[in-house]
Design a protein around this nucleic acid. Structure first.
Length: 454
RNA sequence: GUGGUUGUAGCUCAGUUGGUUAGAGCAUCAGAUUGUGGUUCUGAGGGUCGGGGGUUCGAACCCCCUCAUCCACCCCA
């Protein structure tokens, strides 16, 4: 026997019953909205082939992928192979003789893998949603976990910008239902690409976006410093500065960006796309944020990010358009666009703003007191009939003092208790007590079985 | 991956410059109270002081390592 205290791996959590109920409220809300927009459920395995994941999330992303050690490494006949493989890993390379599987890092790449494997049988455009945990070997901190859930909705096989409008509407609807005030920000990667082109540093796009993404956090001066450190010339930094100076309403910003990139086809296209989305009928309120970049490097068009207002928290959702996601799996020309909800952060935000409904009681409705052998047998019969009616009910597990059974009901916030003792049993009656009001009434068995429990 | 914070009973925390047997509140259990709880009173259980090593006559306290935690960076949901 080990005398070590049990513990959890870093960045993982247990969810107690109360927490699960609250989390379910979030999942149910999001699922309902997904279904409302015609998205269909999909689930994929917790682990993928390492090849499927590597190289899709950038260099930093690769480091954060949880890799799974192969089985059978201890077998003597594998000794040489395994030792050699280990040398490779120590040198910073992956070796399939040591690890060839990994935990999924997000839901988008596994979805792309699924689409690539099944493109012959899918009907396009294919809309799917997926709500499953993902794992990242990040260092945990506020709002950041090593195991967390994502809720994704993607549509593949369509270039139409109506998809973007609908996804924005899904965000707006879901967060409205949850009661979270949010700012939905949009930008377009084509505009960022144009910025890099105009600066003459098309190859510097990643450096530029990473730096300007921090504008509201570290300020203009530090962004300029960082751009310099990333190898951009003063002239290039100056161009970027004039881009960052663009401000005003959505329309004003887009007009200014359009003028700035007047001769640049990519930039013009990006501005057109954003204009189209913003002016489509019933598009929810969006904020054009020209500094929004998003890390995942497969985005090519519209990008989304959702920030909760009134609370200090990273983004609680994000997504965007990718024009050739399945290309790396050998199936070119399938475009797509998708969004993701960060359930764990949404939970933290709702907890902080006290947005969870408190009046909905979803646990046991009735507790039967256990007052003896004959009494509990009778109680059990009634109990089962109430359960057949769909009323959550339970019988105290053993005969005990009233005090104890009352306290149990109180702890579990059970609103009704039924007292069925010797006297009641003889008269085929029972006492029904509402613990919230303290009111108690005597009921025949038939009355109990047909009563309304609110 | 880098830097810092914290770790004492189930929970929240005291614990003096290193000095007998480490405390409190809440919670739990038992009794007062074999059929109507929440109040009150009495009593009890519960800790290798996160883990390992070191310094010392002596460590919850000092040093090193390690694990976990929270925060910042990197990056991200």
């Amino acid at each position: 026997m080990s005398k070590n205290k049990p513990s959890l791996p870093q960045g993982t959590r247990d969810f107690d019953p109360a927490t699960v109920r609250k989390r379910r409220h979030i999942f149910d809300t999001i699922r309902t909205v997904f279904e409302l927009y015609g998205y269909q459920p999909l689930e994929t395995p917790a682990m993928e082939q390492l090849d499927t994941l590597m190289g899709k999330y950038g260099e930093e992303g690769d480091k954060l992928i949880f890799k799974i050690l192969n089985n059978g490494l201890g077998d003597p006949k594998n000794l040489e192979k395994a030792t050699f493989a280990f040398q490779n890993v120590l040198a910073g390379k992956n070796d399939p003789n040591l690890t060839e599987r990994a935990l999924r890092y997000d839901l988008t790449i596994p979805f792309a893998r699924y689409v690539a494997m099944n493109h012959g049988t899918l009907t396009f455009p294919f809309r799917r949603y997926q709500m499953q945990p993902v794992w990242r070997a990040d260092r945990p901190q506020k709002g950041r976990y090593r195991e967390f859930y994502q809720c994704d909705a993607d549509v593949v096989g369509s270039y139409s910008l109506i998809n973007e409008v609908e996804l924005a509407a899904i965000y707006a609807t879901a967060f409205k239902k949850l009661g979270i005030p949010v700012d939905i920000r949009v930008n377009n990667r084509k505009i960022l690409a144009a910025l890099a082109e105009v600066c003459g540093g098309a190859d510097k796009m990643t450096d530029i976006t990473v730096a300007i993404d921090k504008l509201d956090k570290i300020g203009l001066d530090k962004v300029k410093t960082e751009l310099g450190e990333r190898g951009l010339t003063d002239a290039q930094v100056s161009t970027i500065e004039s881009y960052l100076a663009i401000d005003g309403t959505n329309d004003e910003k887009l007009a200014l960006v359009g003028a700035l990139f007047a001769g640049n086809p990519t930039g013009t296209k990006g501005v057109e796309e954003l204009n189209h989305i913003l002016n489509y009928p019933s598009t929810p309120p969006l904020t054009v944020d020209l500094t929004l970049a998003r890390g995942l490097n497969y985005y090519t068009g519209t990008i989304f990010e959702v920030k909760a207002l009134d609370v200090q928290m990273g983004s609680i959702g994000g997504g965007g358009r990718y024009d050739d996601l399945t290309g790396t799996f050998g199936v070119p020309n399938i475009p797509g666009v998708g969004i993701s909800f960060g359930v764990d952060r949404i939970y933290d935000v709702m907890q902080e703003l006290q947005l969870f409904p408190t009046n909905v009681h979803t646990g046991t409705t009735i507790l039967f007191f256990n007052l003896g052998e004959a009494e509990s047998r009778a109680a059990f019969g009634l109990l089962q009939q109430l359960r057949d009616r769909g009323i959550p009910a339970e019988l105290y597990h053993e005969q005990a003092k009233f005090d104890k059974q009352f306290k149990y009901a109180e702890k579990k916030e059970i609103p009704y208790i039924v007292i069925l003792g010797g006297t009641e049993l003889a008269a085929r009656q029972c006492q029904l007590k509402d613990l919230r009001t303290g009111q108690q009434s005597t009921l025949d068995f038939d009355q109990l079985l047909t009563a309304d429990f609110i």
